[in-house]
Each structure stands twice: as C-alpha cells, then as structure tokens.
Amino acid sequence: MIGDGAAIVHGAARMTYDVNVVYARNAENLARIVAALKPYKPYLRGVPPGLPFIWDERTLQGGLNFTLTTTIGDVDLLADVPGGGLYEQIVPFTVELEAFGVRCLVVTLDMLIQLKRAAGRPKDLEIIAELQNILENRFVKQPNLLDSQEA
C-alpha cells in the first residue's frame, strides 16, 4: 500500500477516498487480484457506464495502472509508480503490518515522503509537510503497526 492510505498507517490525520495498491505483474498474482476484486464489480473510474470492460487477467495484462471503482470503494492498482518503479523495486522499502486481521505491506514513512515528492503534485505539498513533521518528531521510532502491540 502506498498513497494516503499509507499516510494514515503512519499516523497522518488525513481523509482519503481510494486505496492505492502496487501490484506484482506475474501471472499468479494477476489471477489473485482478479479473483479478489471480482465480487465487487470493478469498473474503470470516471468513464461512462456501459463501455466494454472485462475484468480478467487479460485486461490486467494489457495495462499497467488502473483507477477502479468498486462496490466497496475506489481502488488504484499501480504497476509502475513514479519514483518508485515496479512492485519488486518498492518491496524493499516496505514494512509488514496487520489491519482488520490481514497482514499487508505498506511503504515506510521515509519512502512514502519520497514517493509523494516524486509524484510532483502541488496537492501533495501539505501531506509531505505533515509526514515530515511526523518524521522529524521521531514519533515513528517504535511504530505501532501491529494490532497485537499495545496502543
């Protein structure tokens, strides 16, 4: 996980309306993603309804980054992240966490700041300031990432 969802993980006081996920593009993982999202009727976000869009491995294989709307919320599936690259290149800069009983990988606070800066969007300046404040105040020395840890 990257983006503002990751910022929430690291303690940022932020509202977000989508989840940004970097995914591996091997065939096995594409099949897993298709199966995981299929019940939630994924469709391209922001395009008129009714356009032909088949949610399958072939569609994923034919694209890179997908901005999707689903019945449980909006999801961005990213194969190549500006500044960060592919899944395999980002994984070394992640930590494992548990949320809602599920373990997943989230980018480190440091890397998240770097990715936000690399995105080069003016709207991210505010969140970069917030994340740098968290970093500078060293609140993250012992991040409370696992539910099993005491709050």
Binding site: G83, F93, T108, M111, Q114, I128, E130, N137
Partner: peptide, 30 residues
C-alpha cells in the same frame, strides 16, 4: 526494510514551500 531509496531526494529534503506548510500542521491530531 530499507527506510528510503538512495535514488531519490532524501525524505528530509528541505523545501521552503513544504516548510511553510509545516507550521500549520496540527500535531495534536497526529
């Protein structure tokens, strides 16, 4: 885990615009 990428500007990179935003971050929420 590696904390950050050596191929990008460091996470504490000084940006005067970001610095201007910092003073208004509500740290109590964080």
């Amino acid at each position: 885990p590696l904390p950050y990428s050596p191929n990008l500007p460091p996470p504490d990179f000084f940006d005067p615009v970001v610095e201007a935003y910092k003073k208004d971050v509500d740290m109590t929420l964080i």
